[in-house]
Nucleic acid binder design. Structure first.
Lengths: 213, 213
DNA sequence: TGTGTTTTGTCAGTCTGTGTCACTAAATTA
DNA sequence: TAATTTAGTGACACAGACTGACAAAACACA
């Protein structure tokens, strides 16, 4: 049992082939004007099988993004327990962004293609942002657990996550995809620095007495 | 031309009838299990005509929300020019929320129904958040014009809008729909106050020398 | 009342996504 | 190695969202 098994390997290959074929078709003809049938044909599988790999066409385009977002969860778990929450978040998003930029060329290329598709398909961009709100919830859970608070009611934690996530998103948005992954990390660092500048240094460490929970 | 004309009035009536019928069906059977045909039948129009009133089923469910968001644009335009940007934003979101809470009972009921549908349909909630990101862009444009900066590059403005919008969203989220519109304003006020508490009082008024643009 | 414009319905069609069933090939067991 | 179980696939049928084209109805106005 040293190998993942023949079946598993083939599945992974088909999955990647679908993503790559789809992204190229999206870039060539546009997301909306590319049909599932065309994608399936390019990989020589039946359209029915396409939906056994991805729940929807949208799913194919956005799944990789949520994967990236989970890096933040991993990075946050690594932060020392005594780090103030806002700082820990900023550092976690920083680390996750760096990790993305340092991936294999093949992976980053895939990522850049997705970004390009997103930029030329506003509706899809909206869906991506909607999804990342879901990830924010999970990040908030981890942060709240760290603080020993209830994620559903700790509004400071919710705010902190929303702030840092928004800053990171803005950093990504002002990164020019045309330049490859080169400037991405810098853009995000800059924007996170701006966010840190905006926040009171002592915020969230100890809630002022009598403050709203 | 004192009246909007018979035709216009009938169109408005049909539009509202569609929204109300749809919301009731959504609440009774769920958003996904309600078909456009059922909604059209309830109002006695053909399914084809439905799509002349709304671009999509999703559109029917979310259009009213974007309408609410535009209140912020109106409120921001009313803020005195010498108010610091972050304060102006907070006040604009405050005013917009109050305006929503003070609408006619019929309108607020519609709004509460939409909220309930959203809560029971995560996918739809995601779409709503994705759309509001679009509104954030428009708010940023107004704020940047106020400051005389370029909305595409003024990252402080982008951050400020994202922060205040996120705080407001969190305020809405922690408002219990079951209690009617009663506590909504308070919840949002509380959350915005928390956000103000988090931000340096002098932030964004005058960028520190040598800061990143 | 007649005429021109808007709105609506009908029909046919595309595309996404799902349920079902039979078939093949891998994995497991004897 | 042979028999058996299991997973992945293709083919077919179908529901539901949405669109384009054209004809019929409803309306506004002279």
């Amino acid at each position: 049992m040293g190998q993942p098994g023949l079946r598993e390997r083939k599945k992974l290959r088909t999955r990647l082939a679908l993503i790559d074929a789809a992204l190229d078709l999206f870039l060539a003809h546009g997301y909306d004007r590319t049909t599932v049938e065309q994608i399936a044909d390019a990989v020589e599988i039946s359209p029915r099988t396409f939906f056994r790999y991805f729940a929807s066409k949208e799913d194919l385009a956005l799944d990789y993004l949520t994967e990236v977002e989970t890096y933040v969860l991993a990075a946050l778990a690594e932060r020392p327990a005594d780090e103030p929450p806002f700082t820990a978040l900023v550092n976690a998003f920083r680390t996750a962004t760096r990790k993305l930029a340092e991936k294999a060329a093949e992976d980053t290329e895939r990522y850049l293609k997705i970004r390009k598709v997103l930029e030329s398909t506003p509706a899809l961009m909206g869906r991506a942002i909607g999804r990342s709100a879901q990830t924010e919830r999970r990040i908030t859970e981890v942060l709240a657990r760290r603080q020993g608070t209830d994620p559903e009611h700790d509004r400071r934690a919710q705010l902190a996550v929303a702030f840092v996530a928004a800053a990171t998103r803005i950093g990504f948005e002002c990164h020019d995809v045309g330049t490859g992954m080169g400037d991405l990390v810098e853009r995000v660092e800059e924007t996170l620095a701006l966010a840190e500048e905006a926040i009171r240094p002592d915020w969230h460490i100890c809630p002022p007495p009598g403050a709203l929970s």
